[in-house]
Nucleic acid binder design. Structure first.
Lengths: 240, 240
DNA sequence: CCGGGATTGTAGCGCTTTGTATCAGCTACG
DNA sequence: CGTAGCTGATACAAAGCGCTACAATCCCGG
């Protein structure tokens, strides 16, 4: 994080929005407000945010729904606000993908402390789908043109990737040297959950290996971690 | 044998310790208990943990102090428990380096949800992403390519290691000339606790020796320390 | 709207890897 | 020497995974 952390505050109550953003700004953060889902999307599309504070009860698309949707695709930490102080609701908020939860009425200083806590454990910014697009990446001797979905191998041969190949590779490249479970990969590439006997990812990996491994029978780039998942074993360099 | 997240529960009340660990274990986690700071240090030194649940009010060194100390050096997510429900104390807990906070009395399900939320944010940094990854190591005349999981012996012969071989070897290489108990090794390689008649590690060692010892019948690299465990007898040099 | 090729999901076989049981040998210690 | 506790090795069964074949689906030009 080069500059101040940028927080997006989404709440339909003008007074809360304003007081929260002002409080955050007085305490070393940058804050932007949005009054509903539509405005939130607008701001999200325009700028970069490090964390979102989201009210559960809102007209239009409500907080829980937004949270579920966002935590599936984006990688933006979310803290939920709600008037419901019951355990049940708090649990739902967390299980749905929020990173933390704060019942109203809350002490602004506690919100600040929780924001800091979440930011502290937010992984350092990695290459994501966004920053990755339109770039040329080099890894393990191969070069990937993310615009053309085209791969160039060590000998300069060009390999055409299918969309599935490409998405899988992108997901792996965004998290080098990290073991990703099949469930995780399926979620990130296809956006769906795995069935009990789902071998889809095994298959995709197998197909991708045939295209990028020097010896597909003894893979080194994409290694299998038994009963855990797969991981990309290479350093990724952004060329352009 | 999925490697479950391992939680360390530190609380001086026996009843809370027991009920929490039991609850976590019934819900897909592995839990270990410690009754004070000393016992905590002991467990931390021996095994791998993904998260710690820490009581604030304890005799001896109290939770806040422990938390402050640990969050400075280690990178272990911490959730604090406390009987104080006041805002002030909650803030102190978070600002001091805890990743979350839960006032007693708490709903176990909420603790579980919060643990999951914190774990989701915490990138799993096990061996894969450890300091040894992406390196070439030399020890006792052998060379290990940690990317390819490939070993080259004195004569240049290449030996393919299975993932279990590799993880075991990595654990040993990270702590050369140190006696590791079977329990410790099992925790570090597979992330699980040993059963009473567990000979898994004996077996793994036996298999690994066949691949790396010059004379597997008279092992010199990996030596047995009777009724203690095993140790790697070589200097490890990072080549690249 | 249709047809054909490319791509992607599903099923299943068979190999490899790994955990458990068991036995036999070894060591320490009387 | 004899015994008890460890350890090493072998055998076996279960689980995980790679790969092939095939079915379903997508894509795109006509």
């Amino acid at each position: 994080m080069n500059s101040l952390p940028h927080i997006l505050v989404v709440d339909d109550h003008r007074q809360i929005r304003d007081s929260v953003t002002r409080f955050l700004e007085r305490n070393g953060m940058r804050a932007t407000a949005a009054k509903d889902a539509r405005e939130m999307e607008e701001k999200l599309a325009k700028g970069h945010f490090d964390l979102m504070v989201l009210d559960v009860m809102m007209p239009g698309e409500d907080g829980l729904s937004i949270c579920k949707r966002l935590s599936a695709e984006k990688r933006l930490p979310i803290i939920m606000l709600t008037a419901l102080g019951q355990d049940q609701d708090r649990i739902v908020g967390l299980e749905i993908g929020a990173d933390d939860y704060l019942p109203k009425p809350f002490n602004p200083r506690e919100l600040l402390a929780r924001i800091k806590a979440v930011l502290r454990r937010a992984p350092e910014e990695r290459l994501e789908a966004g920053p990755l697009s339109g770039r040329i990446l080099r890894f393990g001797g191969l070069t990937l043109d993310t615009d053309a979905h085209m791969l160039t191998d060590r000998d300069g041969n060009r390999v055409q990737l299918t969309t599935a190949d490409f998405r899988l590779l992108t997901v792996l490249l965004a998290r080098p040297r990290t073991v990703l479970s099949r469930e995780q990969i399926l979620d990130l590439t296809a956006g769906r959950a795995a069935g009990p006997l789902d071998r889809t990812i095994d298959n995709q990996i197998s197909r991708l290996r045939r295209k990028i491994e020097m010896d597909p029978l003894r893979p080194t780039l994409i290694t299998t971690v038994r009963s855990q998942g797969y991981s990309l074993n290479a350093d990724v360099e952004v060329v352009e």
